[in-house]
Amino acid sequence: MLITFLRHATAEEGSLSKTDADRSLIDKGEKQVKRLAAFCQANQLIPGTIYSSPLLRAQQTATILNERLPGCPAPQIVDWLGSDTSVSTLLSELSKLVEQGLDDVWLVGHEPDFSEIIARVLATAPYNIIVKKASLTRLDVDFSDVPTARLLWSVPNSLMRQK
């Protein structure tokens, strides 16, 4: 299964007046997603399916991508991509998607969850993985036994410049 991890774009800083779940994208974050969509279009990277965390900043990232990238499916909001989800829960949910026959899944979510699951399937320590905001990281994951993966590529948003 191809899994593309998209960390949400830059959002408001945490504060006492707003819950973490309600933090929204700032102008910089919206620009990052627009740059991401243009990069995806230029490189013919069209998601097969998109699943998003229920947190506002992830939903906004997924929605803007859907609006700006022709052919991009509407995001499906799933609780299992919320922040602080265990690696075992993520792997279990992804295994269910494999059983449904999905082979190209994009996930919009959070750190440190993404670096932890990527590290697990790549058999390395989480501190070896850094998933930047509004970046794309693609793995080819084999769920036939113990989940293992090959890193296909990782592109930070700062390198998604258009000519």
Score class of each variant (00 low, 15 high):
1 M>V: 13
3 I>V: 15
4 T>P: 10
7 R>L: 05
7 R>F: 04
8 H>D: 06
9 A>G: 06
10 T>S: 11
13 E>W: 14
16 L>Y: 13
16 L>M: 13
18 K>W: 10
22 D>F: 10
22 D>T: 09
22 D>L: 15
23 R>T: 03
26 I>L: 05
32 Q>L: 02
33 V>Y: 02
39 F>H: 06
42 A>C: 07
43 N>K: 05
43 N>A: 02
44 Q>K: 15
44 Q>S: 14
47 P>L: 09
48 G>M: 04
56 L>W: 08
56 L>G: 05
57 R>Y: 05
58 A>W: 05
58 A>S: 13
62 A>C: 12
62 A>L: 11
64 I>Q: 07
65 L>P: 10
69 L>A: 09
71 G>Y: 09
75 P>L: 10
77 I>W: 08
82 G>C: 13
83 S>R: 14
85 T>P: 07
85 T>N: 14
94 L>D: 00
94 L>Q: 00
97 L>M: 15
99 E>A: 15
100 Q>H: 10
101 G>T: 04
102 L>E: 08
104 D>S: 10
105 V>R: 03
106 W>H: 01
107 L>E: 01
108 V>A: 03
109 G>S: 04
114 F>W: 12
118 I>L: 03
120 R>N: 13
120 R>L: 06
123 A>D: 15
124 T>D: 03
125 A>Y: 12
128 N>E: 07
130 I>W: 11
130 I>P: 04
134 A>V: 07
135 S>N: 02
136 L>F: 06
140 D>H: 14
143 F>A: 01
145 D>I: 08
148 T>D: 00
148 T>L: 00
150 R>E: 03
152 L>R: 10
152 L>I: 15
155 V>K: 01
157 N>D: 12
158 S>Q: 14
